[in-house]
Nucleic acid binder design. Sequence first.
DNA 1: CGAATTATGTGAGTAAACGCACATACCAAT
DNA 2: ATTGGTATGTGCGTTTACTCACATAATTCG
Lengths: 267, 267
Amino acid sequence: MHAESQASSQVNAQNNRLLSSLDSDVYQRLASKLELTTMTRGEIICPPGSKLTHAFFPVSGIISLLHMLEDGATGESAVIGNEGMLGVAIFAGGYTMTIEATVQNEGYAYRLPAEVLMDEFNRSASMRDLLLKYTQALLAQTSQTAICNRHHAVQQQLCRRLLLTMDRLPGNELHMTQEQIASTLGVRREGISEAAGRLQLAGLISYKRGRITILDRDLLEEYACECYQVVKDECERLERIPAPPRKHLPYSTERRRRIRPPPPGNH
Amino acid sequence: MHAESQASSQVNAQNNRLLSSLDSDVYQRLASKLELTTMTRGEIICPPGSKLTHAFFPVSGIISLLHMLEDGATGESAVIGNEGMLGVAIFAGGYTMTIEATVQNEGYAYRLPAEVLMDEFNRSASMRDLLLKYTQALLAQTSQTAICNRHHAVQQQLCRRLLLTMDRLPGNELHMTQEQIASTLGVRREGISEAAGRLQLAGLISYKRGRITILDRDLLEEYACECYQVVKDECERLERIPAPPRKHLPYSTERRRRIRPPPPGNH
DNA sequence: CGAATTATGTGAGTAAACGCACATACCAAT
DNA sequence: ATTGGTATGTGCGTTTACTCACATAATTCG
């Protein structure tokens, strides 16, 4: 399947909320360096410990930050969809991560060479501001996952995870097997089978061999633990904060312009 | 108890590894703005959602990033000692966090007004580099806590938590009640009582009303889950990475290579 | 088509941690 | 020394998720 043949709604860089929030002059500099790539389900974008050559800005599909323990047990610490970016480690200076970046839901992403990201990060205050706020959002999500893993029941976490996915994909259907969900949540497949069965019985979802349809999103939010909303609220709060005026811009020769609060993100 | 009366080893700003890693010109600029503060056990440095007026650089004692759920359940996502700083949210642009910053072990910290930190962050590449690497370390710790909460037994986590504390405090004794440890791990007090009892029986530790002495650190590491070492290794790796050259490099002319979609075998 | 593969459903027994209740031990203040 | 508060130990029934073992159903492929 070729990227070029896709509907523009899927492959438009503006569908990534970070890219669409960039100052237009920054975006102009980056545009020619952005390269559309496909993300196939199960693809390992970056194994743990390996150097990130590119940052990935999904426009559709979802990347998962997945831990794997010595005994093979897994668990996800955060998801990255069209609201974010894979590659915080690039400008944070580490370049590699302890965890694996895996494609959970296939789709498209624009990728940007690490050096280009780094360069723009150093050059442009608005780029820094945007990426740093995203870093905080990622930290909030990861942190909430920690407490959620401790205290909430599998069924609540399943609801949370389904909502996370729905927020990042178009439509009300998603492609994930119970096995796949189980490894993101770090629980048994059977546990997902039971919880999903109950949710289906309650009329929240319907599913069939890897195709899950959300039937009642409001109810799903009620069944989910608070963690979903906490993270969502924090992300929205961060997006609303305007970029602060910057006085010291050693690298920037460009005219500074105020960031115009971007139009509410198009999902 | 007065800060000025303390042994210099406790109140020297150089005992904070971030402050001691600053370029001397940066440190000179900040030195007069650094203010020594005491941190008392249980003190809430920053309630969730409230604005950080200062960044805190502990030189002794430990700050804990603590979640509290609606039902009152708690759990820690990361600890901050003399290797780090409370206040990533300042330069990340959020200024507030969803979680609470609480003092777990009393000690001293230097605090720096948020605007001063922000200003230096914008001015100095070495400051940025240092704080961003720390941010990645914090993210790694938080992320590992998530998977640890999912998979590891209370006793293993207790060992990990004791080691985390020991690494950040002088001596081999620490002051924490079982109740306190329980709320950082997000488990029952009784669970800690049982696990600690076993560790004492095995000769790893001895304790008495809030005073825990480490008797066999090596054994403690063996009893701990891998998470302790994973985070420690990542922090050390980040500390070893040299600061990049200041001037931004010209965009690499090197040929970009396509990511080869690896075989879809996920697990 | 039938066979193999993949995805899901279900049940029985187990283990870890939980909630609750209460006993014991230590420490500090009068 | 008595008292009261705080910290810890312990037992018991319950809950949740786990391990293991299959059964069933949908999809793919020769």
